[in-house]
Nucleic acid binder design. Structure first.
Lengths: 327, 327
DNA sequence: ATGAAAGCGCTAACAC
DNA sequence: GTGTTAGCGCTTTCAT
């Protein structure tokens, strides 16, 4: 089933069928209808390879997903799904690249014209893929923000503002001693942008508001240790900011064992809305919006002149029931 | 940069370059070396679209990933990553399809010759995609087993055997009263193969061993309810089989509140090795192996005559420290 | 508003 | 063991 079959069936030339499909030329109402009917009747679908050869567009974008021990998989998956959904909405498919392939993966898909652009997740401050991206002239969008953003297009939640928003919320409620419990140490060691920026935002805001503050990294197996330390060293602690979705539950349990329960201990989370009782006041991670924005920006770059820049989505703090006025 | 540039640089014909790349013809050692050097020197990479047009092979496979509320995302991701890794090892890329696209997604990628084959995850007993796959003449492999497997190629862990293995392990340890805590109810309602088969294997083995047994579905918000019910209605309960990775932790906590702690309550898990203390005796889910097998079988189908059939990987129970001899 | 025809870059059948 | 060449199925000038 080829385009010429459709053309014959509709009594037009192949190019007309092509133009009906692409809309790049105005075709009479009547012809358009006949062509569409033929396409329908014959069940015609253009050959993707032929199309990409002739048009120099594959209508495929690559998505590099992280697969590290320390990234919270469900969150990564939400990004991935939103990217796929948004891409499909603009008639593009998504090729999955794993972090494991590294810079070479990017070179490969770019060099073979397999994809029209790429979206890279989980970007580090000094990411090895960034120089490759710069050298590649392959349209790209980063989800996350490296140190040097010169010439890059990045999207992310404004994590600094998110960290700050939590401090302001607690300070507004009268809290004067707060602690920040963050991502696993390894996340900071490899200098993942979002983690660093959140802590920075937290610390700045704490200074600005005159709030006593400390921050601690935290992995699943140091939850108890972190809670113990905090209880011991910060007896006046009344506010807690948790930027570690997988461990919120057990962290709060650990505090509970010391007699500190929510909402006497006021808790604000940063991340996906945590299920559980009581519902946590939190700054939600708008994965769907980030993914959609990334795709939108990538499409702009693919068929327009590059429009570099960093887009930081404003955080929205949703007050639920875990943070209350300081007793 | 085209194949003819490489050919000129190496002083051979384009077809020779093509044959060096594909290995489909024997080329003299010397020529091969010259061609490879030219490829290297020029940084040549074949155009994927041109290649797929001429060879009728895209070297891309599609992977349909589930994105339901009730599937445990980290497990799904492990499958996905193992599929990508295995595919890359045989020089194929992976196009990501979401469950949301349903049967149409399959038709689309097949019809446009975008992919050479497809791997479908999270297959239900009566899956809407199966008839489509049958009608499509697109090589496919299912991860999971539907009711009617006629003409299909399926791979999965032998979940019936896994359920049975847990019963045998507990029975061997002297337990005579066991309970099975499974997936969320919705998983059974949509008749997901692996869930059904596990329960069936559990029940059969319990009858065979003369063990008193009941089974309960369980979702994150019914964990406590399930534990309460079990404690109330099954006072003699000493063995627990948990086929619900995300809830094992809170389930055991709930039992602990009733004074039933591991290993006095012997627990065997089915799923990815659960982190946590004490380490749980479990039948691990060999996601990497399943993914690799799926890719291997798909490659066989892509370049050979179909070799349908159901491959069930034998479960391996690893005794750790959560299941002990009955007191 | 439509058609004719020249490629896009590769593979593989056919020749030697 | 290697070269020549005819497509693969589409898009897009160029022509009308």
């Amino acid at each position: 089933m080829r385009i010429s079959d459709v053309a014959r069936h509709a009594g037009v030339s192949p190019s007309t069928v092509s133009y009906v499909l692409s809309g790049k030329r105005s075709i009479s109402e009547a012809t358009t209808r006949r062509v569409r009917e033929s396409i329908e009747a014959l069940g015609y679908q253009p050959h993707a390879g032929a199309r990409s050869l002739a048009s120099r567009r594959s209508n495929v974008i690559a998505l590099v997903i992280p697969l590290r021990e320390d990234v919270h998989v469900p969150v990564a998956m939400r990004f991935a799904v939103s990217v796929v959904t948004a891409a499909r909405a603009v008639d593009h498919d998504v090729l999955l690249l794993t972090q494991g392939e590294g810079p070479d993966g990017l070179r490969r898909v770019a060099g073979s014209a397999m994809v029209d652009g790429v979206i890279v997740m989980d970007v580090e401050a000094d990411d090895a893929r960034v120089p490759v991206l710069r050298s590649l002239d392959l349209p790209s969008v980063l989800i996350g923000v490296p140190e040097d953003t010169e010439g890059l297009t990045c999207v992310d939640l404004d994590f600094a503002a998110a960290g700050a928003a939590c401090v302001h919320h607690l300070a507004d409620l009268g809290h004067t001693e707060v602690a920040f419990v963050g991502q696993p140490p390894s996340v900071y060691e490899r200098r993942t942008g979002f983690a660093e920026r959140t802590v920075a935002g937290f610390e700045e805001a704490a200074v600005a508001r005159g709030v006593r503050a400390t921050s601690h990294p935290c992995s699943p197996d140091t939850v108890r240790e972190v809670a113990d330390t905090l209880v011991r060293e910060r007896p006046g602690l009344t506010g807690l900011i948790v930027h570690n979705e997988p461990s919120v539950g057990s962290l709060l349990d650990a505090f509970a064992e010391h007699g500190l329960t929510v909402p006497e201990l006021s808790v604000v989370a940063i991340g996906p809305v945590p299920p559980g009782v009581p519902p946590l006041t939190s700054v939600d991670l708008p994965a769907e919006e980030v993914g959609a924005r990334a795709v939108g920006l990538l499409m702009d770059k693919i068929d327009g002149p590059a429009h570099a820049g960093v887009t930081l989505l404003e955080p929205r703090l949703t007050a639920r029931r875990s943070a209350t006025t300081r007793a």
